[in-house]
Design a protein around this nucleic acid. Structure first.
Length: 522
RNA sequence: CGCGGGAUGGAGCAGUCUGGUAGCUCGUCAGGCUCAUAACCUGAAGGUCACAGGUUCAAAUCCUGUUCCCGCAACCA
């Protein structure tokens, strides 16, 4: 299928990484998936058929060992942890279309199929993998990293003893793809943010070695086709999930035809190399189309401190939602930090955002205008009079939001899309204060009605766009405007679908409460 | 000399490519309003734009050097 056919069909495929089950869900997982959710919702509202995929990576030596340590099978461990990730999806209101687990038969079939294709291409060969290995660290070290031990032996930088190990391993001819990869990186927007592209390109320019893609030291994984002593390297296994979900190896399937290649692989900056180097090389080898974009977002710190288990400052997304509410947390994470940058998660900043942007600006704008409408016009949407230049100006600004937001979303600049919306919210408050409808109530009730109409219409458009970021709260706003479920897509945005005069609106209720910190027990 | 990014009022950022009165959000202070969620609106204070030199009529912006911070350098979102 050509690119133009794809755009006609308006399909959109976005993925999160599959999260490794040797961990419990934390803010990082929530953040990556949230970014995808916002984009996926935006695209659906904008008329696209969307495939939004997430899941779990369940194979690998660490999983096997953890399970053993806990006296359960790897399957049991995976089921348990995967359940937590699926609970996070519920809690965060993520609109996923599919949840993949690498232990599923469909995935194992896909991994073995892509392996065979790569092997047929002549890109896989058997050799020996060797190096200084520390059993304690579960890691290989370069000879230049080692230090001399007291008894003449070698030690890892961590102080752990190392031994020279050699095991047979299949290798992928990654080195053969260096030039093709560098050419790929020239494609605008393939790696975002831009600064990351430079990093990856300079890494590739430094020379690529062939990649070991099988292991014989453990069993918990996908067996190599034709040589079951070998287990497929976890990253080849994991990355393949993106095509598994589109029905691979059946490239004629409806899903594959419709959604592959993916529009965005959303990832954290730590796993950029696997997605921007290994994955495209694997796909090139297997003659499969390449994804359009890999976006590597930044990391959170907690009150300025790096987050780590040893520091004990891990942020639990379940607790966050419990404390501050789902939509405020969603808004904060997407708005506070330029998407792609690192950001700091501070309680003060969070409360500030919630109260300033949501409660004071948007929530209060809705409340002050809809209350007047309710009290003075019996809750009926008024018939607007002739629009004044300032009415036209603010409406034009509001009705320009969609194009602006669309552009920013297509550039994966989620914070800018939100910024465009909140600019309008701010100006709408200025407009409202400037027109003083409470004064017009006595001097010119018809004009008051017009001002309230214009304000309500702005709120309608803001609420339509806000559905992508805060689905629950936006729905409440639209309920307050008596907008039916059928009229909430972006097709109803703008001047052609303005509020119908005469519509009865319900009594307004606050949608975004201020967050007031509980009195600290003294 | 490994490669790259950055240093702008109390905090976080934009502006640097295409030199020409230093801008935004939050915070602080004062005033206004009273429709509204102690909200909203207006105004003010606060910066020798890391440091040193150079080019220029003019430099946050271009050039050189210095200091400091950060990312990447084969497996933690």
């Amino acid at each position: 299928m050509s690119a133009s056919d794809r755009s006609l069909s308006k399909s959109f495929y976005i993925s999160t990484p599959i999260y490794y089950v040797n961990d419990v869900p934390h803010i990082g997982h929530a953040y990556t998936t949230l970014a995808c959710d916002v984009i996926a919702r935006f695209k659906r509202l904008d008329g696209f058929d969307v495939l939004f995929l997430t899941g779990n990576d369940e194979h690998g030596q660490k999983v096997e060992k953890s399970a053993e340590a806990q006296g359960i099978t790897p399957q049991e461990l995976c089921a348990r942890v995967s359940g937590r990730f699926q609970a996070l999806i519920e809690t965060m209101n993520f609109s996923i279309d599919d949840f993949i687990r690498t232990t599923e038969p469909r995935h194992i079939e896909a991994v073995q199929a892509i392996w065979k294709r790569m092997a047929e291409k002549g890109d896989i060969y058997l050799d020996a993998y060797s190096g200084w290995y520390s059993v304690r660290d579960e890691a290989f070290y370069g000879v230049d990293e080692l230090v001399d031990g007291p008894d003449g032996g070698k030690l890892a930088p961590t102080g752990a003893p190392v031994e020279w190990v050699e095991e047979p391993s299949y290798f992928f001819r990654l080195s053969a793809y260096q030039d093709k990869l560098l050419k790929l990186f020239e494609q605008p927007g393939f790696i975002l943010p831009e600064s990351r592209r430079n990093e990856v390109a300079s890494f590739v320019k430094g020379g690529l070695k062939d990649l070991s893609i099988s292991r014989t030291t453990f069993k918990w994984g996908v067996p190599v086709p034709g040589d079951e002593d070998h287990i497929v390297y976890v990253w080849l296994d994991a990355l393949t999930n993106y095509i598994t979900a589109t029905g691979y190896p059946d490239q004629q399937s409806e899903l594959f035809q419709k959604f592959w290649p993916a529009d965005i692989h959303m990832i954290g900056k730590d796993i950029l190399r696997f997605h921007a180097v290994y994955w495209p090389a694997f796909l090139m080898s297997a003659d499969i189309d390449l994804p359009s974009r890999v976006f590597a977002h930044g990391w959170w710190t907690n009150e300025g401190e790096k987050i780590s288990k040893s520091l004990g400052n891990v942020i639990d997304p379940f607790e966050l939602v419990e404390t501050y509410g789902l939509d405020p947390v969603r808004y904060f994470m997407m708005r506070e930090v330029p998407f792609g940058n690192d950001g700091d998660f501070s309680k003060t900043a969070l409360i500030n955002r919630i109260n300033a942007d949501l409660a004071n600006d948007l929530g209060n704008l809705a409340q002050r205008s809809l209350s007047m409408l309710n009290k003075n016009l019996d809750g009926l949407v008024p018939v607007p009079g002739a629009l004044q230049p300032q009415d036209e100006a603010i409406l034009a600004q509001a009705e320009g939001m969609l194009d602006a937001a669309r552009g920013h979303i297509d550039d994966s600049l989620i914070h800018k899309a939100l910024g465009a919306v909140w600019d309008v919210v701010g100006d709408a408050n200025k407009y409202f204060a400037g027109e003083e409808p409470w004064a017009l109530k006595k001097t010119d009730p018809a004009r008051m009605g017009t001002v309230l109409y214009v304000t309500a219409e702005i709120i309608r458009n803001v609420a339509l766009l806000s559905q992508a970021i805060m689905p629950g709260s936006a729905a409440k706003l639209l309920d307050l405007l008596a907008i039916s479920e059928a009229e909430r897509g972006f097709g109803f945005f703008g001047a052609a679908h303005r509020l119908a005069p005469g519509t009865l609106l319900p009594k307004p209720e606050g949608v975004f409460p201020r967050y007031v910190e509980a009195e600290a027990p003294s």
